[in-house]
Design a protein around this nucleic acid. Structure first.
Length: 709
RNA sequence: GGGUGAUUAGCUCAGUUGGUUAGAGCGUUGCAUUCACAUUGCAAAGGUCGCUGGUUCGAGUCCAGCAUUACCCACCA
């Protein structure tokens, strides 16, 4: 019997354990009616911390889809996983080391790797428990980690295949270098920060050039202007000009390039190809010499003469002082506003550097991804993300996949320092460079984490092994945060098409951010982070889950309001009490009794059919926000407020027996159907109640009941 | 500079192909209560649907422009 108020804590862990023991999370164990596969691969959770509110939303939405499809009779697989999350995790661990007064730069790579491995193992245990707390009905027997041996093996093979197909190359290109973390970063791993600096106008021979970074100017021997700039028409491409510069006389060469903006500054600039993206491109176009001025720790190299060895910011005023003494400073503009690229993790200013790195040639791969999307092989929810995807795929730049960190999948390659060649060597056999015959060394770098997570749907299903892959690939839905529309989603499409020749999923469902009650982004620095486990503790998982769904349209961010969650806790209690009432009146009920419904009862059941039909339609079109709201409303304001209230007279002592039986049957029918409809959203309470109902043809679990028709 | 959204009740948001008096949750106010539930019930207040114009018999919904706002991308000598 149900008693008192609903107490989530007494129910949730117990029910989850029962489900887990049933084995039904594993589609192979589902009853025979479950034939057609339905698959969601869980986005791999970063194994470097705890679940946050965003994860709670992921778990809720995906579990709703899976439970719904499972009840509909699909062979439902929801495959959980964890990501080593390369740089992200290493940064988290480095912060931990810093707190302990240690540094990764004083550690052996292997030692650091071992420590981070232990760290992620510990996190994995916590994360699993937290995912279970959310009620996630995922198949733990298939859990994957992006550093599992078979994953590493597949990722290595992909690298090799890309190389052989000419889609991976080792290039000496300009990259984003973080001087703190000592690694290169992709463009997506940098952010823009606005800051105010002094803007120096310097006399460069007959020209005035403006710069915020005089410390890069030591090697500047090319002066660039627009070919159509009339002010400088007298100067010809390739013309040499002798002039006095920071550390003595130099010879500058005139370059004309259309990348110049005539409106900006004086319309003339000198270039530093080693430390600026734009300058690098100009120098590539004109085949100019490039020289490194700043080392990887942000210190000036010997080319800086007396300033060599100084840190940039220390050297800057001293350089200006010297230039002033030489009369080469025209003017200094204070408080010049501009933006600089910074490391998205430590906010250190990115120092562009030219380095030998591995790159993926994106254009041919992206074209195929765009083609598949244009051919409607993938549906985006909400639809406008399709445009964003295509825009991204139509404007790609080559992807730097090497990182100078230990935490990640090692790049299985050999490097020749003599001729700068690099080539895959999966079996670790090559000892001499095939180009110049000189000895080679093993590449110490690791892959960008997106290189492996980009292959996630494949490796999660043990590709190229056929068993699961054949049954569950392509998967049905990829559900993910909207911010991953260009970081992750395209890479999965690209690798899916490249390796398996099929898109990895047919639908992409994107959810927005979970914000605090005031609509602010949650962040540790603001101190407004809400821990989902605290909410579960206070209100129960079911209340949290339905709160995350009702009224939350895909792609839109959602403020997390505790008042609202409290409302859904009340709803859980309402479900509990209504069920308690129905059960209280079923003591003389038998499912075998034949009953005849009166007109009113027939109408109630007919109305219920409408609700079922509508809800199903909304579930099928991924409108969980509407489906949940409709059931909520029906349960509370139709079932409780009207149907139960109006049924009371027929249940009291001394009422007509036939009428009582028909009323019992009707109430039970409506209640059971409601529990089924509610189950994907509020799995715990509905399962607990279902277990106690005298339902005709009852299944072992509500979880595997049939979705009402 | 480019892109994508948003703008509807005090707050957070729905409103499906244009069709009577525009909805929900939370909040607010009043009343009720030995009844499954006070974690309740009943009732109420509250919106010229950002602005301007257009299409239409009819516009919150479609089109154009504007304003405000959020996020994303690029550039910044």
């Amino acid at each position: 019997m149900l008693e008192g108020q609903y107490e989530a804590k007494k129910v949730e862990d117990k029910i989850y354990k029962l489900w887990e023991e049933s084995g039904f999370f594993n589609p192979d164990n589902l009853p025979t009616r479950h034939k057609k596969p339905f698959t969601i691969i869980m986005p791999p959770t970063n194994a470097n911390g705890n679940l946050h509110a965003g994860h709670a939303l992921v778990m809720t939405i995906e579990d709703i889809m899976i439970r719904y499809k499972r009840m509909e009779g699909f062979k439902a697989l929801w495959l959980p996983g964890l990501d080593h999350a390369g740089f992200e995790t290493q940064v988290v661990y480095e912060k931990k080391l810093e707190k302990e007064g240690r540094s990764r730069f004083k550690m052996e790579g292997a030692e650091l790797y071992k420590e981070i491995w232990a760290f992620t193992e510990e996190n994995k245990t916590h994360i699993r428990n937290q995912v279970k707390k959310m009620g996630a009905s995922c198949d733990w027997s298939r859990e994957k980690f992006t550093l599992d041996q078979d994953v590493v093996k597949t990722v290595h093979k992909t690298f090799d295949k890309l190389y052989k197909d000419g889609l991976v190359y080792r290039g000496k290109r300009i990259i984003n270098w973080c001087t703190k973390h000592q690694t290169s970063l992709s463009d997506l791993e940098t952010s823009d920060t606005e800051q105010q600096d002094k803007f120096y106008y310097l006399k460069y021979g007959p020209f005035i050039i403006a710069t915020t970074r005089p410390e890069t100017k030591f090697g500047d021997k090319y002066v660039v202007m627009h070919p159509n700039d009339k002010r400088y028409a007298e100067y010809k491409e390739g013309q040499k000009i002798d002039l006095e510069w920071i550390n003595g006389p130099i010879t500058a060469t005139i370059i004309k390039d259309e990348a110049m903006d005539m409106e900006m500054g004086t319309g003339v600039m000198t270039i530093t190809p080693w430390h600026s993206g734009v300058d690098f491109e100009i120098s590539e176009r004109h085949n100019l010499e490039k020289e490194q001025i700043i080392d990887f720790y942000g210190k000036l190299l010997p080319i800086a003469g007396e300033f060599a060895g100084m840190k940039i910011l220390e050297a800057r005023p001293k350089i200006i002082e010297k230039l002033q003494q030489k009369g080469l400073v025209e003017k200094i503009e204070e408080n010049y506003k501009h933006t600089v690229k910074t490391c998205y993790k430590c906010n250190a200013i990115i120092e562009p550097q030219i380095m030998n790195q591995w790159f993926v040639k994106m254009d041919p791969l992206a074209k195929k991804a765009a083609q598949a999307v244009r051919a409607k092989k993938i549906t985006f929810i909400p639809d406008n993300y399709r445009k964003i995807f295509l825009h991204w795929m139509d404007n790609t730049i080559d992807w730097n996949i090497s990182r100078q960190i230990v935490w990640g999948i090692p790049i299985p390659a050999k490097i020749c320092d003599s001729c700068n060649a690099g080539f895959p060597d999966l079996d670790n056999k090559v000892i001499a460079c095939p180009n110049c015959k000189k000895p080679v060394r093993a590449d110490k770098d690791t892959f960008d984490t997106w290189f492996s997570s980009g292959q996630w749907p494949l490796v999660a299903l043990n590709y190229p092994d056929k068993k699961d892959f054949k049954t569950f690939y392509p998967t049905n839905v990829m559900e993910s945060g909207a911010d991953l529309i260009f970081k992750w989603i395209p890479r999965m499409v690209i690798f899916g098409l490249y390796l398996a020749k099929k898109v990895p999923f047919n639908t992409v469902y994107l959810h927005g951010l979970v914000l605090d009650a005031k609509g602010q982004k949650m962040s540790k620095s603001k101190g407004n982070v809400i821990n989902p486990l605290d909410l579960i503790e206070k209100y129960g998982t079911d209340a949290l889950r339905i709160n995350l769904v009702v009224g939350n349209t895909p792609g839109t961010s959602l403020p997390l309001d505790e008042n609202k969650i409290r409302g859904y806790k009340n709803f859980a209690n309402k479900i509990w009490n209504a069920s308690k009432f129905v059960l209280m009146n079923l003591n003389d009920y038998s499912p075998k009794t034949k009953v005849v419904y009166n007109a009113k009862q027939k109408k109630i059941l007919k109305d219920l059919q409408k609700i079922v039909k509508n809800t199903t339609k909304q579930m099928d079109s991924f409108k969980f926000y509407l489906a949940s709201e409709e059931i909520y409303h029906y349960f509370w304001h139709a079932f409780c407020d009207k149907i139960i209230e109006e049924a009371k007279p027929a249940l009291i002592e001394g009422a007509n027996k036939k009428q009582r039986q028909a009323t019992q049957q009707m109430l039970l029918e409506v209640l059971t159907t409601n529990l089924k409809l509610l189950h994907p959203f509020m799995p715990f309470i509905t399962e607990e109640i279902y277990q106690q109902l005298p339902v005709k043809g009852k299944k072992e679990f509500l979880m595997i009941e049939s979705w009402p028709k």
